[in-house]
């Protein structure tokens, strides 16, 4: 069944799944980088195909649409959070707290690691190689967040492709990984943002790619995030985004 899901991207993009399969697939594909890429590509393909059916709408429809939208409120854009001058002090306090927790987790990881919890089993299966590779440079932390029972995998997508964000609230950790990412020049950095329910964002941390590869995990503040976004910021990061969001994805809703 799960195996089957990987082959449904084409039918999904053509809206050719029944409701049950569509639901199943919509639960699956955001967590699967291959399927999300296929869905994005097939949607564009379908859209080109749609051009072959092109047909002028009647003139009055334009008036109808423009009249209708005048009465429809647009959703809130994703904006920077309010100026918060306590941010800097918070950062320092958090850093201290996180250092302590890092040490605690470092000790725990010896027994935590074998507990490849079922919730993350799929991710772990896919990413075992990644975790092993990463564990050489950042002992255990990458594998640990992947193995967290509450880990949620979010695929953030943009023009440039996709990244995976693994988030464990229990561990206050985020891991980001991706391939084929365009490397930035040294004066800039990628910055990950929690996207909150009201459309505002909160900083989640910085990461870089090296030869197109991103592998990073770190401690974060806790937020009721509904999504993740990524911007490019000056080296050292920003307290709020100073450029357009280039990757964005919704956090899957969990039932626990």
């Amino acid at each position: 069944m799960t195996n089957d899901l990987h082959h449904l991207a084409a039918a999904y993009a053509l809206d050719a799944l029944d409701d049950t399969e569509r639901d199943d697939f919509e639960t699956h594909y955001p967590t699967c980088s291959i399927c999300s890429q296929e869905v994005a590509d097939f949607h564009v393909t379908a859209s080109v195909l749609a051009g072959s059916a092109a047909s002028d709408a009647p003139e009055h429809l334009r008036t109808g649409v423009l009249t209708a939208i005048a009465e429809v409120r647009q959703v809130a854009p994703i904006v920077a959070p309010n100026q918060d001058n306590s941010a800097v002090t918070n950062d320092v306090a958090d850093l201290a707290r996180h250092r302590q927790r890092d040490q605690r987790l470092g000790r725990r990881s010896q027994w935590l690691l074998p507990l490849m919890a079922s919730a993350a089993a799929v991710v772990v299966a896919v990413l075992t190689t990644v975790a092993i590779l990463d564990s050489r440079t950042a002992p255990d932390s990458f594998a640990e967040v992947l193995a967290a029972p509450d880990a949620i995998v979010t695929t953030v997508v943009g023009e440039a492709g996709a990244l995976q964000v693994v988030w464990s609230r229990d561990q206050d950790r985020v891991a980001v990984f991706g391939n084929n990412v365009a490397d930035l020049d040294p004066e800039t950095t990628f910055e990950l943002w929690f996207v909150l329910d009201d459309g505002s964002v909160a900083k989640a941390g910085l990461f870089q790619s090296s030869d197109g590869v991103v592998r990073k995990t770190w401690m974060t503040e806790d937020h009721d995030a509904v999504g993740f976004g990524v911007t490019v910021e000056p080296a050292g990061g920003s307290a709020q985004p100073t450029s357009d969001i280039i990757y964005l994805g919704d956090v899957a809703q969990t039932t626990n």
């Binding site: 994005a40 949607h43 564009v44 649409v65 429809v72 647009q74 959703v75 997508v157 023009e159 969001i245």
Partner: peptide, 21 residues
């Protein structure tokens, strides 16, 4: 078609950052 355009209008502020074309 009218419903579709109203929906696109409504969601437009979120589009720029979203996927694809």
């Amino acid at each position: 078609t009218q419903e579709v355009y109203v929906e696109i209008w409504r969601l437009a502020p979120r589009f720029d950052q979203q996927r694809g074309s």
